[in-house]
Structure formats: C-alpha cells, structure tokens
Amino acid sequence: MTETFISWGMDPNWAWGVATIAGILLIALPLMLAVAMIIYADRKIWAAIALRRGPNVVGPFGLLQSFADGLKVFLQETIVPSGANRGLFLIAPIITFTVALLAWAVIPFNSGAVLADINVGLLYILAISSLGVYGVILSGWASNSKYPFFSAMRASAQMISYEVSIGFILIGVVLFADSFNMNEIVKAQQGHGLGIVNAFGFNLLLFPLAVMFLISSLAETARAPFDLTEAESELVAGYQTEYSSMSFALFWLGEYANVLLMCTLNAVLFWGGWLPPIDWAPLYAVPGIIWLFAKILFFFFVFSWVKATVPRYRYDQLMRLGWKVFLPISLLWIFLISGYLMLTRYS
C-alpha cells in the first residue's frame, strides 16, 4: 500500500505512516462490523438448533439487532461499584478489547495482504493471546466482589493451561512450514496433500493437531463447553457481573473478536488460509480473501454449533483435558513430527 501512496506523489516516510494507519483502519473497522454481524449469526444459529426464532424484530430478519443492542448499552449509565478499584476496573475492559484487535496485525488476508509481515508472526500471536487473560483477571479482582473473583481465578488457570498445549500444537505446524511467518505458513500448505489439497489438516500427522487446536481454541476463548469463567448457573455472569454500559460492551466486542481470531487461526494454520481448498488453477480466480472468509465462517459455525449442543464441562474435567490429555499428546506429536521430518526432509 505504501507504494500506492508514493506513486500519488507522497513523501516515502509520510506514505509509510499513512499506509499503516489506513491498513489498521481497513482491518479494525470491518472487524467491528463483522463482530456485530457474527453476534447476530451466533444467536440465530443457536436459536435454530434450539428450535427457536432468535432475534427477528429489529430490521429485516432481525439483522440490525446487534446495532440496536450496541446503541442501548451506549446510552446506559456506566456504574462503578463503590468498593471497586476504580482505575483497574475501567482499564480491564479496555485491555480485553485492545488485545483482541492487536493480534489481527499479522493475519494474512491474501498473498502479501498483511499489515505487519514479521518473521515471528506466530510467536506474536502467542504473545498477544497470552495477554487476553489480564482483562479477565483484572476485572475480576477490581470488581471487589466474590463471583467475579472466582471467575478471574478460573480464567487465569484455564488460559495458562491451554496456552501450553496450544504452544506445542503450533510448534508442530511450524516444523512442517519451516517458518514462523504467517504468510509462509499459508504458502507451505499449497499442494500439501498429495499435491492436490491445500491444507495441513489433510496430513495424517497434522490432523490430530488440527482437532486439538480447534478444541483448545474453544477453551482459550472461554466459549462453551469451556465457558466456566462466565458460567451463569454458578457465577452469575463471572467477571462481567459488575460491569454495565460501554465497559460491558467492550468485553462483549473483545470476546467475539477473539472468537473470530481463533477461527481465523484455525483456517490459516491448518486449512490453507487464503488458498483455495484444492490446488486447481481455475479456483485461484476467486480472490484469496473470499476463501479465507469462507473458512472463517465455517469455523465460526462450528463454534456456534458446539455452543448450542455440548453441555458445559466441570472444572476438574477441563483441567484434566488440558494437562492430562492434550499436553502429553501434543508433546508426543512433536517427537513424531520431527522424527518424520528428519527421516523424509532432512536426511
């Protein structure tokens, strides 16, 4: 994009700055719109599975429901509990929201269409996603209330546990792709399955990792069946209990932006990102961003589907799955994958 601005007769330094800001807006604004629509989609899918109608009043088919909800919370009064730690109470939702947006900087939307094409893209995503937990912990502590505090404790333990296995799963992908750069990871998947399929997920060695990553990403975003941090039957609304108005809306937006990010990561790391599913020339006529969006929406449907059908885990079951099932298997898989690669690629 910088080149375009330079060709319009702009000073290179200025062109870089303007291009970066334009890129940020190009990602953040559609993302916010997508979050609003995806909340609507989530409620509709959930309703359809439960044989209900879902939102159907505001706008045609209820399409404007999320915007109506947004306007409602925007007009409400922000209440800070008197016992709360005021500064941290207000910073916590901002952290959640900002962190949810930050990781999108390294997501490749098409060949070369990435805001920050850095060498350590995947590590950057790990680093940013490990920050997400602070919003939850701080809001729970700063609320000075019992249920949010329980929720904060649960959230910190849960997210740390699943980050460990996610880290090991990602190493498997990195070993195959031979790069931490997100764009390189996508390119490495071209023709990966017998020269026909563009996805790591069809590799028999990587398929179990893809499944584990999908489940771990449910746990990492605290979606059902792992939504113990906001289990309404035990903790009212968890860490969000004391929040109102925009501070609540920021949690809401951040949460769904994170869900979209995890869907995108599933698509990019295991299912070919912006590549068409099959390595066949006519399919490349369709812009890569459409393939990526199709994959993201598919994974979002899976997320909603799981939310509507699977009952919530108990906390000890959640911990067992993370530490006693995913961690040993992903560790074993690293040995398997590196052994396989030593045998075939590097010997």
């Binding site: 590590l123 790990l126 602070y134 404790m153 740390i160």
Partner: peptide, 25 residues
Amino acid sequence: AEFIAMLLVIVYVGAVAVLFLFVVM
C-alpha cells in the same frame, strides 16, 4: 532481537506475571 522480544512477552508477561498476580490477588 524480535525473537527475544516475543519470548519476553510470552514467558514473563503471559506466564510468570499471571502467576504473580494470581498469588498477589
């Protein structure tokens, strides 16, 4: 040293400081 920078965030901010906070809270 972008690798060290990312590791610093992942290890210290993402894990060590969370445990600190866990205890201190």
